[in-house]
Design a protein around this nucleic acid. Sequence first.
DNA 1: CGTTGACGTGTCAATGTTGGAAGGTAAAGT
DNA 2: ACTTTACCTTCCAACATTGACACGTCAACG
Lengths: 183, 183
Amino acid sequence: MLEGKVEVMSLRHAVLGLLADRPASGYDLMKLFDTSLANVWAATQSQVYGELGKLSDAGLVTVTAEGPRGRKEYAITEAGEAELRQWLTGTPPTPARRSDSLLRVFFLGRLTRLEAVTYLESEASRAAARRSALQELEGAVDWDEGPLSVYGRIVLEYGMRQSVMHEEWARWAAEQVGSADTP
Amino acid sequence: MLEGKVEVMSLRHAVLGLLADRPASGYDLMKLFDTSLANVWAATQSQVYGELGKLSDAGLVTVTAEGPRGRKEYAITEAGEAELRQWLTGTPPTPARRSDSLLRVFFLGRLTRLEAVTYLESEASRAAARRSALQELEGAVDWDEGPLSVYGRIVLEYGMRQSVMHEEWARWAAEQVGSADTP
DNA sequence: CGTTGACGTGTCAATGTTGGAAGGTAAAGT
DNA sequence: ACTTTACCTTCCAACATTGACACGTCAACG
């Protein structure tokens, strides 16, 4: 019995999505991964170049120009657009299944109460710092260009709400732990 | 120049953390991964048994009993406890670097406005459903036993706040998209 | 002219992860 | 007695991911 694979392969779709906006080289894409997508989907150089090769083999992208230093500019094909749409509309998102931070919290009972409170408070600080960083980013970006900017801003808003929530939760948790009955 | 590796290896610490509470077999651990840790850290059978082997080789756990069907019960050793503590107190948590959901949102500009709104509203529904599930879980668990329960509840609270935030954000985003100037 | 820095692509080994198959034992129900 | 269900471990191929390393070019500067 043959079954079609139910792969997620989001790296593939991240590359397709970026190329759907405009053609780019692997180098260009890396810059986008390190800036626009930094808080959404991380990728390394090896992955990006590797994925471009695979996408090219699969006919989802093509080389549209070759520049000075062996630069290859890729563009999405119709098949690629179709794949991207299919992913966006037809594939259910997979919820995050792992969290380093929460795993630690789960085991905080192995530490003394003071240590646990300290940990939770540093979580709160990290969340606050993250929020500042995002706010700074918001000021630094030109929000009036490209189709990515509309949704980019919505994604940024998520990050900000997330960090606010995270900080409040961590402070609440620290209080819970600090003021319990049994030491 | 030799440098110590800066590995995260949270699966290892998830296993250690569970064994720190009480000894267990690989099978027992799997059940815990599928229940207590389901929303925090997913692991497959292969991983758990493989990790137990490595931990055993490294002296962080030992076999304390052998039961009926080749069952091996593992317990954490002092070295294991030390490693767990070190991870909890001395290793900075690594923030989540990837989100399937957010990546989609980032590329929602490839769809029509209606499709985008539909997507965002289904995100809201999913978040609401998740919240219900967590609330049900809260009712089903005995919160008065073991050192895990205190922090387990705190982790659960995180999940609930997270899903509330997620739902509100998705509804807000749908509204933003639905009521913009340019169609 | 020589150096530096940004541009640009490609490959590799080690490790993590997935999903399943294979192989077997004990207990409980019929 | 028989069968189902739960228990329990081990192995593996395929794929994803990381973090380097290797190679080479163009432009600008002093």
